[in-house]
């Protein structure tokens, strides 16, 4: 299986050598092919040569995109800023990439400024609105996020991302009914989005609507069999409804997929205790304690927005 990408890379390399290293169009096509092949690092090299050969906005833009895909957001910001400075007119793709790169490099406030400016120029560009809303959500600005994501939903009613992120924003505002409504739209528009199904299940569970929550978790499992988050959600419903046997089965299935799943371990211990299986419960608690000590918080969703003040 590992031969295939190697073969693809060899073919691409041959193409590069055959095309002439300084031909901008050839360098562009080569870089794009590397991106399509899932090798952003090689694409970066091609686009660096492209920038050297043709230092215009387009070249810097592609370099920025490749750097972003190569998980080098700070360098991407530099390239995309350069592209922006050379651009004669605003470019929505450039705005979106720069906003994304800024957010990923920890400059959320700058990202908002760029995306807000982009949203003024391209008020119907749903991807910019969605990215802006998501960025505001990560900055704990739920009210702004809600407003801009509603706009995104209005301009692109068939875009499944807008209601999904709107649901996150609503949930972060504690508005669980609107969050459930938004997640519900997200799964109608994109039934394969298992994350949206799980988010819907969690929200419905918090709203005290267990039957609908159960349906949402099952829908998530239909799309992603063995998904721990959905199995844990189902297990919690079983536990709360006084069926610890069913809960044990769900939590154990979640742990089969993710042996360190903290929430599954915690609740499995409770379910085993309820069944009087004290020794097993104690063993599971020890596993939970180890997982808790690792500091990994896989289940934390809403509370991640807590502002944690740190020393200067």
């Amino acid at each position: 299986m590992r031969l295939i990408p190697s073969l693809g890379a060899a073919l691409l390399l041959s193409a590069v050598l055959a095309s002439g290293a300084q031909d901008p169009e050839a360098l562009l096509r080569t870089g794009q092919r590397w991106l399509d092949a899932g090798n952003p690092r090689a694409a970066v090299e091609s686009f660096r040569r492209l920038v050297a050969a043709a230092p215009d906005s387009r070249s810097h833009y592609y370099l920025g995109v490749a750097l972003l895909q190569d998980d080098r957001p700070e360098e991407a910001v530099d390239a995309l800023r350069r592209a922006e400075s050379l651009a004669e007119i605003p470019n929505p793709a450039l705005t979106l990439s720069l906003g994304t790169a800024l957010l990923r490099s920890g400059e959320a406030e700058a990202a908002v400024l760029v995306l807000e400016e982009g949203a003024k120029h391209f008020p119907r560009a749903a991807p910019i609105l969605i990215q802006l809303g998501y960025t505001q959500y990560t900055r704990l600005d739920g009210i702004s996020a809600r407003a801009v994501l509603r706009r995104a939903r209005a301009v692109a009613p068939n875009n499944a991302q807008a209601p999904f992120y709107l649901g996150l924003a609503e949930a972060a505002l504690g508005a669980l009914e609107p969050a459930a409504e938004a997640f519900g739209k997200a799964v109608i528009l994109d039934p394969r989005n298992f994350e949206a199904h799980v988010a819907l299940g969690r929200t419905l569970s918090q709203l005290g609507r267990p039957e609908e929550a159960r349906e949402a978790y099952r829908a998530a499992l239909a799309e992603a069999p063995g998904l721990p988050a959905a199995l844990v959600g189902l297990g919690r419903l079983e536990l709360e409804e006084g069926r610890p046997e069913g809960a044990v089965a769900s939590f154990e299935a979640a742990l089969a997929a993710d042996p360190g799943h903290r929430q599954a371990l915690y609740n499995l211990a409770a379910a085993l205790s309820l069944l009087g299986r004290s020794e097993e419960a104690a063993q599971v608690r020890r596993r939970f304690a180890e997982a808790a000590a690792s500091g990994d918080d896989p289940g934390r969703s809403l509370s991640r927005t807590r502002s944690k003040a740190r020393p200067r």
Binding site: G174, S205, Q206, L207, G208, E240
Partner: peptide, 21 residues
Amino acid sequence: LGGRLFLDATASFGLGSESLT
């Protein structure tokens, strides 16, 4: 639940959605 066992039942008690913010 008795037997020195408790279960976080915030949602089924109806307390989840109104105490988040």
